[in-house]
Design a protein around this nucleic acid. Structure first.
Length: 765
DNA sequence: CGGGCAGTGAAAT
DNA sequence: TCACTGCCCG
């Protein structure tokens, strides 16, 4: 929970982007968001203490989505509560208990939907749940870390140390901590928004030019943050204005007191100071030093030891184990992995130690050199032939370079180099252009980054192995072993939940039968799903759909089998296929080609917009589109593809060869329109085009998607779009997307071309 | 009287 | 998250 209203305030500097633009980079992920979202899907199960498998699956889908966009996730989990937050957390825990009770009551009363709503409020992400996810992360070789306290400063710390290149989170607090690159509002299809610290000066809502991190922080605290309740009736803008006028928080507070309009506690200044210190010096884990450090190195006149509110110091050894996820960061007890016998765990741990190096994504040369046992990954994907995609991902620069080179031969497009991007990008260049020159970081820093990245991981791995072993040994004996060490009220509060999680796992599973009535063959579904190996966006959707509460998609899904959504890791091209294995294979093969296409600069810019819009649309319209696809056969996918990859490669079996030709044609068209076209106008024309297409007409049409006949609508829309801001475009594009969906099985190339033409037309008009 | 800001409730996810 | 309401200021 960040600063309410902060994001709207910074709206003008939010740059719409796509996840794939971060290909090759490592993004720190605020694990809590995903954990929580996953948990929402399984709220009822969790409340009943059932196994958390579904929810782990959800989170892992999300991880895989990132990987398939070529992004290396680095998951950061929350640790213990900060003392300053403990009080509030206690209240929350109470509320959760209440919600849980009422939710379960509703469930018994036969009102599942209401119960689910209520139980959502009861969700509590426990260390055990995080640990369950960690187990999966280990299998796949995704780096992670459990922060000693809050994930936010931990993420920013990692960013500052160069271990990650950006932060993926919904929490605006990260900006207060000084995050340089915050990626937010990630959607299922990879659309997201980047907020770059460097753009602050360009903020239109409020003028942050020349504002230091300190001033920004003061503003946030004045408004009210996690560490200090804000002054009543004092909003962000007011805080901003006051700070602007009076510079220092002390003066601001004085003025506010003098004003009399605001009621300010007498000790507010002191609390303010404390909150700021918490922002500044709260403890994080340094993977390099393998110990806790202050988020910022405190000046000599500040004694962090005397500041209880920033969190207690933890011994390095314990800190490491916490970071590895072996130990409950709150109770400091070993975490027992639910549903796993000690023996099994031991086995796993030992096996993990070996494969560890397997994680090629970590991207160090060393790593790449290490023979990659794909076994674990394969197992995860359940025998899908496609699995290699993950491995194929060129986290290392060398791999990408090779790929790019090969691509260059065929295509005329500029190659995209997956080099880590410095925060400093050329603003002048449209984000959509891959071709834009990257500023290279100094070699030193880069190598450093790599080294650091690897180091922590390898260490973690080793530690995990040993720790796990030890854990398994001890687990039966001592749950309470370290309990005395850090006893607090919240600990006791938590313990029951923990117990529930661990104990209930076995018996709970039996209860699934209830659900089966509503969802025919839940087990079947899962197995099905796995076989089909869902990737990226759709996979996430699937996961969501699987949730018991949602009925609508169920029918579609069951009827049709699963469709696999593939994207070539590299570019915008998405190849889509149905769940057939053959298709998958084919797609994989075609993937490289697809990758090439997007790199064409002109196309890219023009198309990029489409992609963004569509992706958003698709996410919005997901249910409907999905259904239609099932009925018509892969309709949605094709639409996606077309939107995403103008150039064209189609996943459609017959068309792969066509791709290059089509690509060229479309490129030519696009070039003409690309430069001329203002970004804003582009989407509209596309809509028109789609409407006009005969091909569209031929295709089976879903009534809801039928293009609107009247031209008036378009005009109206265009009028509305005055600003031309990208946000505004989105709504319009919906209809557009729908149309595309209808087009469905048409060749990508065809679709792309017509669009292009229309666009140009529109421009001229 | 209109605009800007803050708070509230409903709806959607 | 959005849309509405109320409050305050010019």
């Amino acid at each position: 929970m960040g600063i309410q209203g902060l994001l709207p305030l910074l709206k003008s500097i939010q740059k719409p982007t796509e996840l794939k633009k971060y290909k090759g980079e490592t993004l720190g992920v605020d694990g809590y968001g995903w954990l929580h979202r996953g948990a929402i899907s399984c709220a009822i199960e969790l409340a009943e203490g059932k196994p958390t498998r579904k929810y782990v699956h959800y989170v892992m889908n999300r991880v895989r989505m990132m990987q398939h966009f070529g992004v290396n996730p680095y998951i950061v989990f929350d640790g213990d509560f900060l003392p300053s937050k403990a009080g509030e957390e206690a209240h929350r825990a109470k509320r959760r208990e209440e919600s849980k009770a009422s939710g379960l009551a509703l469930l018994k009363a036969g009102k599942p939907s209401l119960a689910h709503r209520e139980l959502q409020k009861a969700i509590d992400i426990t260390p055990e749940m995080a640990r369950a996810v960690i187990e999966e992360l280990k299998k796949v070789g995704v780096p992670y870390i459990v922060a000693p306290y809050e994930a936010d400063p931990q993420l920013v710390y990692l960013e500052r140390e160069g271990i990650i290149n950006g932060i993926l989170s919904e929490d605006s607090d990260l900006l207060v901590f000084g995050a340089k690159r915050l990626i937010t509002k990630l959607e299922q299809h990879g659309a997201c928004i980047e907020i770059n610290r460097r753009d602050f000066g360009a903020c239109r809502e409020i003028s942050l030019t020349g504002w230091s991190d300190e001033q920004f922080r003061h503003m946030a605290i004045l408004h009210g943050c996690d560490y200090l309740e804000g002054i009543k009736a004092l909003g962000l803008k007011t805080a901003y204005r006051m700070l602007r006028k009076h510079k220092t928080p002390e003066k601001v507070v004085k003025m506010l007191q003098f004003d009399g309009k605001y009621r300010i506690p007498s000790d507010y200044l002191q609390l303010f100071h404390q909150a700021e210190l918490t922002f500044l010096y709260q403890r994080v884990y340094c993977p390099k030093a393998k110990a806790l450090v202050s988020f910022n190195t405190p000046p000599s006149d500040i004694d962090t030891g005397a500041m209880a509110f920033i969190g207690g110091l933890v011994e390095p050894e314990m800190a490491q184990r916490i970071a590895n996820g072996c130990v409950n960061p709150m109770t400091k007890e070993d975490i027992v992995v639910a549903g796993q016998s000690p023996d099994a765990r031991k086995r796993r741990a030992s096996s993990i130690v070996g494969p560890r190096p397997q994680a090629p994504r970590l991207g160090t040369q060393t790593r790449a050199a290490v023979p990659t046992p794909t076994k674990p990954i394969d197992s995860y994907f359940n025998g899908n032939s496609r699995i290699p995609l993950g491995n194929m991902d060129p986290n290392c620069f060398s791999v990408d370079a090779q790929r790019t080179a090969s691509m260059t031969d065929n295509g005329q497009r500029p190659i995209v180099f997956p080099l880590p991007r410095p925060y400093i990008e050329d603003e002048a260049l449209p984000p959509s252009r891959l071709s834009r020159p990257y500023t290279n970081q100094p070699l030193n820093s880069r190598s450093q980054t790599l080294r650091r990245r690897t180091e922590p991981i390898s260490n973690l791995l080793l530690d995990d192995g040993t720790t796990l072993g030890s854990t398994s040994r001890r687990e039966t004996v001592n749950i309470t072993r370290d309990a005395g060490r850090q006893s607090s009220s919240r600990l006791t509060a938590r313990s029951p939940k923990k117990a529930r999680l661990c104990n209930d796992v076995g018996p709970e599973s039996v209860n699934n039968n209830e659900r089966s009535k509503f969802f025919p063959g839940p087990v079947k579904k899962e197995s099905k799903r796995r076989n089909s190996y869902l990737m990226s966006d759709d996979s996430v959707e699937e996961a969501m759909r699987e949730l018991p509460d949602i009925d609508s998609w169920h029918s579609a899904k069951s009827a049709k089998g699963i469709m696999v959504f593939k994207e070539s890791p590299e570019k915008d091209g998405l190849s889509i296929s149905k769940d057939d294995d053959e298709h998958d294979v084919r797609n994989t093969a075609s993937a490289p080609m697809t990758g090439k296409l997007p790199s064409a600069t002109p196309l890219r810019s023009a198309i990029g917009r489409f992609t963004f819009n569509q992706s958003q649309q698709s996410s919005r319209t997901t249910p409907s589109s999905t259904i239609s696809s099932s009925s018509t056969s892969s309709t949605p996918m094709s639409s996606m593809t077309s939107s995403t990859m103008p150039s064209t490669n189609k996943s459609t079996p017959a068309t792969p060869l066509m791709t290059p030709l089509q690509r060229l044609g479309s490129q030519a068209l696009n070039r003409v329109k690309g430069p001329a076209t203002p970004s804003f106008t582009a989407p509209r024309p596309a809509k028109r085009i789609s409407k006009g297409r005969k091909s569209l007409d031929n295709l089976p049409v879903n009534a809801s998607f039928v293009p609107l006949p009247p031209v008036d609508l378009e005009e109206v829309e265009s009028l509305h779009q005055t600003g031309g801001s990208e946000d505004m475009i989105i709504p319009d594009s919906e209809s557009e997307e729908a149309d595309n969906g209808l087009v469905g099985q048409e060749n990508m190339g065809k679709v792309a071309r017509p669009r292009t033409v229309d666009l140009s037309r529109f421009l001229y008009s």
